[in-house]
Design a protein around this nucleic acid. Structure first.
Lengths: 195, 195
DNA sequence: AGCGTTTATTAATGTACATTAATTTTTGTC
DNA sequence: GACAAAAATTAATGTACATTAATAAACGCT
Protein backbone atom coordinates (compact mmCIF):
# COMPACT_ATOMS: atom_id res chain seq x y z
CA UNK A 1 0.00 0.00 0.00
CA UNK A 2 1.33 3.45 -0.85
CA UNK A 3 1.95 6.04 1.83
CA UNK A 4 -0.99 8.08 0.54
CA UNK A 5 -3.25 5.03 0.79
CA UNK A 6 -2.07 4.38 4.36
CA UNK A 7 -2.82 7.99 5.18
CA UNK A 8 -6.35 8.12 3.84
CA UNK A 9 -7.20 4.81 5.49
CA UNK A 10 -5.83 6.00 8.81
CA UNK A 11 -7.92 9.12 8.42
CA UNK A 12 -11.09 7.20 7.59
CA UNK A 13 -10.53 4.86 10.50
CA UNK A 14 -11.28 7.72 12.85
CA UNK A 15 -14.89 7.26 11.79
CA UNK A 16 -15.34 3.70 10.53
CA UNK A 17 -13.33 0.50 10.37
CA UNK A 18 -13.08 -1.39 7.11
CA UNK A 19 -12.34 -5.00 6.32
CA UNK A 20 -9.48 -5.81 3.98
CA UNK A 21 -11.87 -6.27 1.09
CA UNK A 22 -13.63 -3.03 1.78
CA UNK A 23 -10.32 -1.22 2.08
CA UNK A 24 -9.07 -2.46 -1.23
CA UNK A 25 -12.36 -1.74 -2.95
CA UNK A 26 -12.31 1.78 -1.59
CA UNK A 27 -8.70 2.32 -2.61
CA UNK A 28 -9.46 0.99 -6.07
CA UNK A 29 -11.93 3.83 -6.62
CA UNK A 30 -9.41 6.56 -5.81
CA UNK A 31 -7.31 8.32 -8.38
CA UNK A 32 -4.10 10.04 -7.36
CA UNK A 33 -3.30 13.42 -8.79
CA UNK A 34 -0.54 15.93 -8.24
CA UNK A 35 -0.79 19.65 -8.67
CA UNK A 36 1.89 22.28 -8.89
CA UNK A 37 1.43 25.44 -6.91
CA UNK A 38 -0.96 27.62 -8.87
CA UNK A 39 -2.59 24.77 -10.79
CA UNK A 40 -6.35 24.82 -11.09
CA UNK A 41 -8.14 21.74 -9.75
CA UNK A 42 -11.66 22.99 -10.40
CA UNK A 43 -12.72 25.91 -12.57
CA UNK A 44 -15.98 27.76 -11.92
CA UNK A 45 -18.49 26.83 -14.59
CA UNK A 46 -17.14 23.35 -15.18
CA UNK A 47 -18.55 20.08 -13.91
CA UNK A 48 -17.69 19.29 -10.32
CA UNK A 49 -17.26 15.53 -10.36
CA UNK A 50 -14.81 14.74 -7.60
CA UNK A 51 -14.48 14.82 -3.86
CA UNK A 52 -10.83 15.44 -3.12
CA UNK A 53 -8.72 14.26 -0.22
CA UNK A 54 -5.49 16.18 0.36
CA UNK A 55 -2.47 13.96 1.00
CA UNK A 56 -0.10 16.90 1.35
CA UNK A 57 0.10 20.49 0.20
CA UNK A 58 -2.65 23.07 0.33
CA UNK A 59 -5.71 23.99 -1.73
CA UNK A 60 -8.00 26.99 -1.67
CA UNK A 61 -11.63 27.15 -2.77
CA UNK A 62 -12.95 30.57 -3.68
CA UNK A 63 -15.85 32.33 -5.30
CA UNK A 64 -15.27 35.18 -7.73
CA UNK A 65 -17.81 38.00 -7.59
CA UNK A 66 -18.86 40.21 -10.52
CA UNK A 67 -16.45 42.95 -9.38
CA UNK A 68 -13.42 40.70 -9.49
CA UNK A 69 -13.40 40.18 -5.75
CA UNK A 70 -12.69 36.76 -4.32
CA UNK A 71 -14.35 35.16 -1.31
CA UNK A 72 -12.35 32.26 0.09
CA UNK A 73 -14.79 29.48 0.91
CA UNK A 74 -12.30 27.17 2.55
CA UNK A 75 -8.74 25.96 2.66
CA UNK A 76 -7.71 22.32 2.68
CA UNK A 77 -4.39 20.98 3.92
CA UNK A 78 -3.30 17.41 4.62
CA UNK A 79 -6.22 15.17 5.68
CA UNK A 80 -8.94 17.57 4.61
CA UNK A 81 -11.55 16.81 1.96
CA UNK A 82 -12.59 19.52 -0.46
CA UNK A 83 -14.98 20.08 -3.35
CA UNK A 84 -17.69 22.53 -4.36
CA UNK A 85 -20.19 20.72 -2.17
CA UNK A 86 -23.38 22.50 -3.35
CA UNK A 87 -22.53 21.70 -6.96
CA UNK A 88 -21.08 18.26 -6.30
CA UNK A 89 -24.20 17.00 -4.55
CA UNK A 90 -26.64 18.66 -6.92
CA UNK A 91 -24.74 17.78 -10.11
CA UNK A 92 -24.49 21.42 -11.13
CA UNK A 93 -21.65 23.32 -12.78
CA UNK A 94 -19.19 24.61 -10.20
CA UNK A 95 -19.77 28.08 -8.78
CA UNK A 96 -16.34 28.21 -7.22
CA UNK A 97 -12.80 27.48 -8.25
CA UNK A 98 -10.19 25.44 -6.42
CA UNK A 99 -6.48 26.04 -6.90
CA UNK A 100 -3.29 24.70 -5.38
CA UNK A 101 -1.43 27.20 -3.22
CA UNK A 102 1.46 24.78 -2.83
CA UNK A 103 2.63 21.71 -4.68
CA UNK A 104 -0.07 19.32 -3.65
CA UNK A 105 -0.99 15.68 -3.95
CA UNK A 106 -4.58 14.51 -3.69
CA UNK A 107 -6.72 11.42 -3.96
CA UNK A 108 -9.91 11.87 -5.95
CA UNK A 109 -13.20 10.10 -5.52
CA UNK A 110 -15.70 10.51 -8.33
CA UNK A 111 -19.37 11.19 -7.64
CA UNK A 112 -20.51 7.86 -9.07
CA UNK A 113 -17.89 6.01 -7.06
CA UNK A 114 -19.01 7.67 -3.87
CA UNK A 115 -22.57 6.60 -4.64
CA UNK A 116 -21.27 3.13 -5.33
CA UNK A 117 -19.49 3.11 -1.98
CA UNK A 118 -22.70 4.10 -0.21
CA UNK A 119 -24.45 1.16 -1.82
CA UNK A 120 -21.78 -1.49 -1.45
CA UNK A 121 -20.36 -0.39 1.91
CA UNK A 122 -23.08 1.45 3.83
CA UNK A 123 -20.55 2.36 6.52
CA UNK A 124 -19.45 5.10 4.18
CA UNK A 125 -22.75 6.81 4.87
CA UNK A 126 -21.62 7.05 8.45
CA UNK A 127 -18.18 8.41 7.61
CA UNK A 128 -19.72 10.98 5.34
CA UNK A 129 -22.44 11.81 7.86
CA UNK A 130 -19.79 12.67 10.41
CA UNK A 131 -17.78 14.69 7.94
CA UNK A 132 -20.84 16.66 6.80
CA UNK A 133 -21.85 17.17 10.41
CA UNK A 134 -18.44 18.62 11.22
CA UNK A 135 -18.52 20.81 8.14
CA UNK A 136 -21.98 22.10 9.05
CA UNK A 137 -20.92 22.92 12.58
CA UNK A 138 -17.82 24.73 11.30
CA UNK A 139 -19.80 26.86 8.87
CA UNK A 140 -22.47 27.67 11.42
CA UNK A 141 -19.87 28.88 13.89
CA UNK A 142 -18.30 30.90 11.10
CA UNK A 143 -21.60 32.69 10.46
CA UNK A 144 -22.04 33.26 14.17
CA UNK A 145 -18.58 34.76 14.58
CA UNK A 146 -18.93 36.88 11.47
CA UNK A 147 -22.08 38.44 12.91
CA UNK A 148 -20.94 38.75 16.50
CA UNK A 149 -17.24 39.55 16.43
CA UNK A 150 -15.17 42.35 14.90
CA UNK A 151 -12.50 41.49 12.34
CA UNK A 152 -9.68 41.55 14.91
CA UNK A 153 -11.20 38.79 17.01
CA UNK A 154 -12.03 36.72 13.97
CA UNK A 155 -8.45 37.01 12.79
CA UNK A 156 -6.99 35.90 16.13
CA UNK A 157 -9.51 33.11 16.21
CA UNK A 158 -8.49 31.90 12.79
CA UNK A 159 -4.80 31.89 13.72
CA UNK A 160 -5.54 29.88 16.82
CA UNK A 161 -7.98 27.45 15.26
CA UNK A 162 -6.09 26.77 12.05
CA UNK A 163 -2.39 27.37 12.74
CA UNK A 164 -1.48 24.78 10.11
CA UNK A 165 -3.38 26.73 7.49
CA UNK A 166 -2.35 30.19 8.65
CA UNK A 167 1.30 29.29 8.18
CA UNK A 168 0.75 28.27 4.56
CA UNK A 169 -1.49 30.94 3.10
CA UNK A 170 -1.06 34.65 2.34
CA UNK A 171 -2.69 37.40 4.37
CA UNK A 172 -4.65 38.28 1.27
CA UNK A 173 -6.25 34.85 1.39
CA UNK A 174 -6.88 35.02 5.10
CA UNK A 175 -8.57 38.39 4.61
CA UNK A 176 -10.86 36.98 1.96
CA UNK A 177 -11.71 34.06 4.24
CA UNK A 178 -12.59 36.47 7.04
CA UNK A 179 -14.69 38.67 4.78
CA UNK A 180 -12.46 41.77 4.91
CA UNK A 181 -10.01 43.42 2.51
CA UNK A 182 -6.26 42.77 2.68
CA UNK A 183 -5.77 46.47 3.40
CA UNK A 184 -7.95 46.29 6.47
CA UNK A 185 -6.28 43.10 7.65
CA UNK A 186 -3.01 45.04 7.49
CA UNK A 187 -4.51 47.66 9.76
CA UNK A 188 -5.72 44.97 12.15
CA UNK A 189 -2.31 43.34 12.22
CA UNK A 190 -0.60 46.64 12.77
CA UNK A 191 -2.93 47.40 15.70
CA UNK A 192 -2.18 44.02 17.22
CA UNK A 193 1.55 44.63 16.84
CA UNK A 194 1.29 47.89 18.79
CA UNK A 195 -0.46 46.24 21.71
CA UNK B 1 -50.66 6.27 13.52
CA UNK B 2 -51.07 9.92 14.54
CA UNK B 3 -51.01 12.68 11.99
CA UNK B 4 -47.66 13.84 13.36
CA UNK B 5 -46.25 10.34 12.95
CA UNK B 6 -47.52 10.17 9.38
CA UNK B 7 -45.87 13.49 8.71
CA UNK B 8 -42.43 12.66 10.05
CA UNK B 9 -42.44 9.33 8.24
CA UNK B 10 -43.45 10.97 4.98
CA UNK B 11 -40.64 13.44 5.48
CA UNK B 12 -38.07 10.73 6.23
CA UNK B 13 -39.19 8.76 3.21
CA UNK B 14 -37.72 11.43 0.98
CA UNK B 15 -34.35 10.00 2.00
CA UNK B 16 -34.84 6.39 3.11
CA UNK B 17 -37.61 3.82 3.15
CA UNK B 18 -38.36 1.92 6.30
CA UNK B 19 -40.00 -1.42 6.93
CA UNK B 20 -42.98 -1.57 9.25
CA UNK B 21 -40.81 -2.77 12.12
CA UNK B 22 -38.27 -0.05 11.56
CA UNK B 23 -41.01 2.53 11.35
CA UNK B 24 -42.56 1.52 14.63
CA UNK B 25 -39.20 1.30 16.35
CA UNK B 26 -38.33 4.77 15.15
CA UNK B 27 -41.68 6.17 16.21
CA UNK B 28 -41.32 4.53 19.63
CA UNK B 29 -38.21 6.61 20.29
CA UNK B 30 -39.94 9.94 19.61
CA UNK B 31 -41.51 12.07 22.26
CA UNK B 32 -44.18 14.59 21.34
CA UNK B 33 -44.09 18.02 22.91
CA UNK B 34 -46.12 21.16 22.49
CA UNK B 35 -44.94 24.67 23.08
CA UNK B 36 -46.86 27.89 23.42
CA UNK B 37 -45.60 30.91 21.58
CA UNK B 38 -42.75 32.33 23.62
CA UNK B 39 -41.90 29.07 25.39
CA UNK B 40 -38.25 28.16 25.69
CA UNK B 41 -37.30 24.79 24.22
CA UNK B 42 -33.58 25.06 24.89
CA UNK B 43 -31.83 27.50 27.18
CA UNK B 44 -28.19 28.49 26.60
CA UNK B 45 -26.02 26.84 29.23
CA UNK B 46 -28.22 23.79 29.66
CA UNK B 47 -27.69 20.34 28.24
CA UNK B 48 -28.70 19.92 24.62
CA UNK B 49 -30.07 16.39 24.50
CA UNK B 50 -32.63 16.38 21.73
CA UNK B 51 -32.90 16.71 17.99
CA UNK B 52 -36.27 18.28 17.32
CA UNK B 53 -38.61 17.81 14.37
CA UNK B 54 -41.22 20.51 13.88
CA UNK B 55 -44.70 19.18 13.17
CA UNK B 56 -46.25 22.62 12.95
CA UNK B 57 -45.53 26.09 14.25
CA UNK B 58 -42.19 27.90 14.23
CA UNK B 59 -39.03 27.91 16.31
CA UNK B 60 -36.05 30.23 16.36
CA UNK B 61 -32.50 29.40 17.45
CA UNK B 62 -30.36 32.34 18.49
CA UNK B 63 -27.11 33.22 20.16
CA UNK B 64 -26.95 36.03 22.72
CA UNK B 65 -23.78 38.12 22.67
CA UNK B 66 -22.21 39.86 25.68
CA UNK B 67 -23.84 43.16 24.69
CA UNK B 68 -27.33 41.78 24.70
CA UNK B 69 -27.49 41.42 20.94
CA UNK B 70 -29.03 38.36 19.38
CA UNK B 71 -27.82 36.52 16.31
CA UNK B 72 -30.48 34.29 14.80
CA UNK B 73 -28.82 31.02 13.85
CA UNK B 74 -31.82 29.50 12.13
CA UNK B 75 -35.57 29.23 11.98
CA UNK B 76 -37.49 25.98 11.82
CA UNK B 77 -41.04 25.59 10.55
CA UNK B 78 -43.00 22.44 9.69
CA UNK B 79 -40.75 19.58 8.52
CA UNK B 80 -37.51 21.16 9.69
CA UNK B 81 -35.19 19.64 12.28
CA UNK B 82 -33.50 21.89 14.81
CA UNK B 83 -31.06 21.70 17.71
CA UNK B 84 -27.83 23.33 18.82
CA UNK B 85 -25.86 21.02 16.54
CA UNK B 86 -22.32 21.88 17.76
CA UNK B 87 -23.39 21.18 21.34
CA UNK B 88 -25.66 18.25 20.53
CA UNK B 89 -22.96 16.31 18.72
CA UNK B 90 -20.18 17.20 21.15
CA UNK B 91 -22.26 16.68 24.31
CA UNK B 92 -21.58 20.22 25.49
CA UNK B 93 -23.85 22.72 27.24
CA UNK B 94 -25.88 24.70 24.73
CA UNK B 95 -24.43 27.96 23.46
CA UNK B 96 -27.70 29.02 21.92
CA UNK B 97 -31.32 29.19 22.94
CA UNK B 98 -34.36 27.96 21.03
CA UNK B 99 -37.80 29.46 21.56
CA UNK B 100 -41.22 29.06 20.00
CA UNK B 101 -42.35 32.04 17.95
CA UNK B 102 -45.77 30.44 17.46
CA UNK B 103 -47.69 27.71 19.18
CA UNK B 104 -45.69 24.74 18.05
CA UNK B 105 -45.71 20.99 18.19
CA UNK B 106 -42.55 18.96 17.86
CA UNK B 107 -41.28 15.40 18.00
CA UNK B 108 -38.09 14.94 19.98
CA UNK B 109 -35.37 12.40 19.44
CA UNK B 110 -32.85 12.05 22.25
CA UNK B 111 -29.12 11.78 21.57
CA UNK B 112 -28.90 8.20 22.86
CA UNK B 113 -31.89 7.19 20.78
CA UNK B 114 -30.35 8.65 17.65
CA UNK B 115 -27.18 6.68 18.36
CA UNK B 116 -29.33 3.62 18.89
CA UNK B 117 -31.04 4.20 15.56
CA UNK B 118 -27.67 4.44 13.81
CA UNK B 119 -26.75 1.07 15.28
CA UNK B 120 -30.01 -0.78 14.80
CA UNK B 121 -31.07 0.78 11.51
CA UNK B 122 -27.97 1.97 9.64
CA UNK B 123 -30.16 3.59 7.00
CA UNK B 124 -30.53 6.41 9.49
CA UNK B 125 -26.91 7.27 8.85
CA UNK B 126 -27.93 7.94 5.28
CA UNK B 127 -30.90 10.09 6.21
CA UNK B 128 -28.77 12.08 8.58
CA UNK B 129 -25.92 12.29 6.11
CA UNK B 130 -28.24 13.91 3.60
CA UNK B 131 -29.68 16.27 6.18
CA UNK B 132 -26.23 17.34 7.38
CA UNK B 133 -25.10 17.74 3.79
CA UNK B 134 -28.02 20.04 3.06
CA UNK B 135 -27.39 22.01 6.23
CA UNK B 136 -23.72 22.40 5.36
CA UNK B 137 -24.52 23.61 1.88
CA UNK B 138 -27.06 26.10 3.25
CA UNK B 139 -24.61 27.56 5.75
CA UNK B 140 -21.81 27.75 3.23
CA UNK B 141 -24.01 29.70 0.84
CA UNK B 142 -25.02 31.93 3.72
CA UNK B 143 -21.38 32.79 4.41
CA UNK B 144 -20.78 33.39 0.73
CA UNK B 145 -23.74 35.73 0.40
CA UNK B 146 -22.88 37.56 3.59
CA UNK B 147 -19.44 38.33 2.21
CA UNK B 148 -20.42 39.07 -1.36
CA UNK B 149 -23.82 40.78 -1.24
CA UNK B 150 -25.12 43.95 0.42
CA UNK B 151 -27.94 43.68 2.95
CA UNK B 152 -30.62 44.57 0.41
CA UNK B 153 -29.84 41.61 -1.83
CA UNK B 154 -29.58 39.26 1.12
CA UNK B 155 -32.98 40.40 2.33
CA UNK B 156 -34.64 39.84 -1.05
CA UNK B 157 -32.92 36.49 -1.25
CA UNK B 158 -34.23 35.46 2.11
CA UNK B 159 -37.79 36.42 1.20
CA UNK B 160 -37.57 34.43 -1.98
CA UNK B 161 -35.83 31.39 -0.52
CA UNK B 162 -37.87 31.08 2.65
CA UNK B 163 -41.29 32.63 1.99
CA UNK B 164 -42.84 30.26 4.52
CA UNK B 165 -40.53 31.53 7.21
CA UNK B 166 -40.65 35.19 6.20
CA UNK B 167 -44.40 35.23 6.65
CA UNK B 168 -44.15 33.96 10.22
CA UNK B 169 -41.31 35.91 11.77
CA UNK B 170 -40.79 39.55 12.68
CA UNK B 171 -38.49 41.88 10.77
CA UNK B 172 -36.40 42.11 13.90
CA UNK B 173 -35.73 38.39 13.65
CA UNK B 174 -35.04 38.56 9.94
CA UNK B 175 -32.57 41.36 10.56
CA UNK B 176 -30.72 39.32 13.15
CA UNK B 177 -30.63 36.38 10.74
CA UNK B 178 -29.14 38.60 8.03
CA UNK B 179 -26.56 40.09 10.38
CA UNK B 180 -27.95 43.64 10.38
CA UNK B 181 -29.92 45.76 12.85
CA UNK B 182 -33.71 46.09 12.66
CA UNK B 183 -33.26 49.82 12.10
CA UNK B 184 -31.17 49.24 9.04
CA UNK B 185 -33.57 46.62 7.73
CA UNK B 186 -36.25 49.31 7.97
CA UNK B 187 -34.12 51.57 5.81
CA UNK B 188 -33.60 48.77 3.31
CA UNK B 189 -37.33 48.05 3.16
CA UNK B 190 -38.16 51.70 2.75
CA UNK B 191 -35.68 51.97 -0.14
CA UNK B 192 -37.25 48.95 -1.79
CA UNK B 193 -40.71 50.46 -1.37
CA UNK B 194 -39.62 53.60 -3.17
CA UNK B 195 -38.33 51.71 -6.18
C1' DA C 1 22.35 37.95 -7.53
C1' DG C 2 19.00 40.70 -10.11
C1' DC C 3 14.58 41.95 -11.72
C1' DG C 4 9.77 41.73 -12.53
C1' DT C 5 5.58 40.47 -10.21
C1' DT C 6 2.88 39.70 -6.41
C1' DT C 7 1.96 40.81 -1.63
C1' DA C 8 1.94 43.82 2.41
C1' DT C 9 1.73 48.24 4.35
C1' DT C 10 0.30 52.98 5.05
C1' DA C 11 -2.65 56.91 4.61
C1' DA C 12 -6.54 59.76 2.78
C1' DT C 13 -11.13 59.60 1.74
C1' DG C 14 -15.66 57.35 1.23
C1' DT C 15 -19.66 54.34 2.47
C1' DA C 16 -22.54 50.66 4.38
C1' DC C 17 -24.18 49.91 8.31
C1' DA C 18 -24.52 50.73 13.76
C1' DT C 19 -26.11 53.52 17.52
C1' DT C 20 -29.15 56.39 19.89
C1' DA C 21 -33.39 58.34 20.50
C1' DA C 22 -37.89 59.78 19.43
C1' DT C 23 -42.42 58.66 17.10
C1' DT C 24 -45.71 55.70 15.02
C1' DT C 25 -47.73 51.35 14.17
C1' DT C 26 -48.91 46.77 15.35
C1' DT C 27 -49.90 43.21 18.51
C1' DG C 28 -51.66 40.77 22.23
C1' DT C 29 -54.56 40.74 26.28
C1' DC C 30 -58.28 41.63 29.76
C1' DG D 1 -62.54 48.07 22.18
C1' DA D 2 -58.98 50.08 25.32
C1' DC D 3 -54.46 49.97 26.65
C1' DA D 4 -49.90 48.35 27.57
C1' DA D 5 -46.05 46.32 25.34
C1' DA D 6 -43.50 45.06 21.45
C1' DA D 7 -42.26 46.05 16.80
C1' DA D 8 -41.41 49.12 12.99
C1' DT D 9 -40.08 53.43 11.22
C1' DT D 10 -37.46 57.71 10.77
C1' DA D 11 -33.62 60.73 11.41
C1' DA D 12 -29.17 62.41 13.41
C1' DT D 13 -24.77 61.05 14.39
C1' DG D 14 -20.96 57.71 14.72
C1' DT D 15 -17.84 53.88 13.31
C1' DA D 16 -15.95 49.68 11.21
C1' DC D 17 -14.57 48.68 7.25
C1' DA D 18 -14.01 49.62 1.86
C1' DT D 19 -11.77 52.10 -1.77
C1' DT D 20 -8.12 54.24 -4.01
C1' DA D 21 -3.51 55.14 -4.55
C1' DA D 22 1.18 55.20 -3.53
C1' DT D 23 5.33 52.91 -1.43
C1' DA D 24 7.81 49.16 0.48
C1' DA D 25 8.69 44.43 1.14
C1' DA D 26 8.73 39.65 -0.28
C1' DC D 27 8.67 36.32 -3.69
C1' DG D 28 9.58 33.66 -7.94
C1' DC D 29 12.23 33.01 -11.89
C1' DT D 30 16.30 32.81 -15.13
Amino acid sequence: MTAAAEQIIANLSRHISLTEDETSFFLSRLKAKTLDSGDVLLQAGQACDTFNYVVHGALRAFFSTENDKEVTIMFAIADWWITDMPCFVNRQPAMISITAIEDTSILQLRYEDLELLYTRIPKFERAMRIMMQNAYVREQLRVLQTFSQPAEERYLNFLQKYPGIASKVTNKHIASYLGITPEFLSVVRSRLRHK
